[in-house]
Amino acid sequence: MSEAVRFHFTVDGDDFTSAGQASVQVKKNLRTLGIAPEIIRKVSIAMYEGEINMVIHAGGGEADVLIFEDRIEIHLCDNGPGIANIDLAMQEGFSTAPDNIRSLGFGAGMGLPNMKRYSDSITIDSALGKGTKILMTVNLS
């Protein structure tokens, strides 16, 4: 199998004005590669929610997008506080976002549910004090 196309991003943890930039760039790159619009939309939404979570909850992190022949993988990795209870965090409406973040329109507790909904598979590896690693896969066929 041919080598995957890879995009790497460092997600800044304290710049809200540029939050989402990596996802917007990925959208552009996927368009250039001629990926189907429905797939681009799924990847964009799933990645944006993960990117924003790293900004809001983890002080930033790293994002890698790998494009294979049959799938796109989104790898997110941060050294933030970790998620205490993943099942609870996955529930619609659960959020620990503070008021100043909520006033910007975040904190509905819909980000992780969106990530699950718009990816074909998601694995979350997180523990308190250890940070969070997320892998989302969107199938191309």
């Binding site: 004005t17 917007v24 959208k27 619009p37 964009s44 944006y48 329109g105 975040f106």
Partner: peptide, 15 residues
């Protein structure tokens, strides 16, 4: 009625 900078990325990604 949300008007901060983050609406631009959301509009772009939600298309």
């Amino acid at each position: 009625i949300m008007s901060n900078i983050n609406i631009v990325a959301v509009a772009s990604l939600a298309d």
